[in-house]
Simulated scan of single mutants.
Amino acid sequence: MTDMIQDTQRDKVLRIAFLVAMIVFFALPIVYMAATSFKTPDDVLQGRLLPDEVTLANYPNAFSHVPVMRMIVNSVAASLLSATITLVIAVPATYATIKLKAFARTVPNITLASYAAPPIIALVPLFYLLQSARLMDSVLGLALVHGLMNLPVAFWLLRSFVADIPEDIDEAAWIDGAGYFRTMIVVILPLIFPGILATGLICIILSYNEFLFASALTFSESSRTITVGMSLFQGERLVNFGQMAAASLAGMAPIYLIALMFQRHLVGGLTHGSIK
């Protein structure tokens, strides 16, 4: 009995130690960035975690030198719009491929192959396409590119959710007179809603953090995103690390808030969707 209690206590200590180590591992970069945002340029060069002299000047300077808030708004707008575009295309395509067996072998291979290729390959064609469509240097054009770019990810994430729905449910809806489109909207979408929510969240994060296309397809303050804005703090001979850290914390806030807001709904939604 004593040995069992000792083993239980040992396991508990190990779990707590592992949990603490994981928290430190993931939180330390954010803590260091937050500390850097309060450092003077001399403190930044020292490389210590905590500043010797705390300064608040980095925050007003960062927001006055670079339109950080405008870029954050552009990033949020582009990510939300791109996720919507991705889901509007990916959900019917996944349903048609999995349930209706439309191009069941071709579509998965094409989507996987397109995502495996380096994104920079599509940069020049997309540049000319957006220029021809008069969507160059716009949030809408960037959202369209991100929405199409994230289609392979959305397809492969939604594929398992759609495949888990028994075919008897579709067949029962078809027997009752519901067409393919109505079956997908009324019957399938509520069942795979947790998967749609999770896929949308991942697409939002991917779009919000994307840099390559954002840097090449936007070049004005009206459309530039926060990832591109971070590079504006780098001068010819000096990098304003304190101001960059302050702007980075502000840029991280929206995506972290979205993740925290949807975390509970994702876990609860998965359980609710399985019960349905």
Score class of each variant (00 low, 15 high):
residue 1 M to P: 12
residue 7 D to W: 13
residue 10 R to G: 07
residue 12 K to Q: 01
residue 12 K to Y: 03
residue 15 R to S: 09
residue 17 A to E: 01
residue 35 A to I: 09
residue 37 S to T: 05
residue 48 R to V: 04
residue 50 L to F: 03
residue 57 A to I: 10
residue 58 N to H: 07
residue 61 N to T: 08
residue 67 P to L: 02
residue 68 V to M: 12
residue 75 S to E: 08
residue 76 V to S: 06
residue 79 S to E: 02
residue 82 S to C: 02
residue 88 V to T: 08
residue 90 A to M: 00
residue 104 A to T: 15
residue 105 R to H: 11
residue 106 T to M: 09
residue 112 L to P: 00
residue 123 L to Q: 06
residue 138 S to H: 00
residue 148 L to D: 08
residue 150 N to D: 09
residue 151 L to Y: 01
residue 152 P to N: 06
residue 155 F to D: 11
residue 160 S to D: 13
residue 168 D to I: 02
residue 171 E to Q: 13
residue 171 E to M: 06
residue 177 G to C: 10
residue 182 R to Y: 04
residue 189 L to T: 13
residue 190 P to F: 01
residue 197 L to Y: 03
residue 197 L to S: 12
residue 198 A to E: 03
residue 200 G to C: 06
residue 201 L to N: 03
residue 207 S to R: 05
residue 217 L to P: 02
residue 221 E to F: 02
residue 233 F to N: 00
residue 240 N to C: 14
residue 241 F to E: 04
residue 241 F to G: 01
residue 244 M to P: 11
residue 244 M to T: 14
residue 250 A to S: 07
residue 251 G to W: 07
residue 255 I to Y: 03
residue 256 Y to Q: 12
residue 258 I to A: 11
residue 259 A to L: 15
residue 265 H to Q: 14
residue 268 G to P: 06
residue 270 L to V: 09
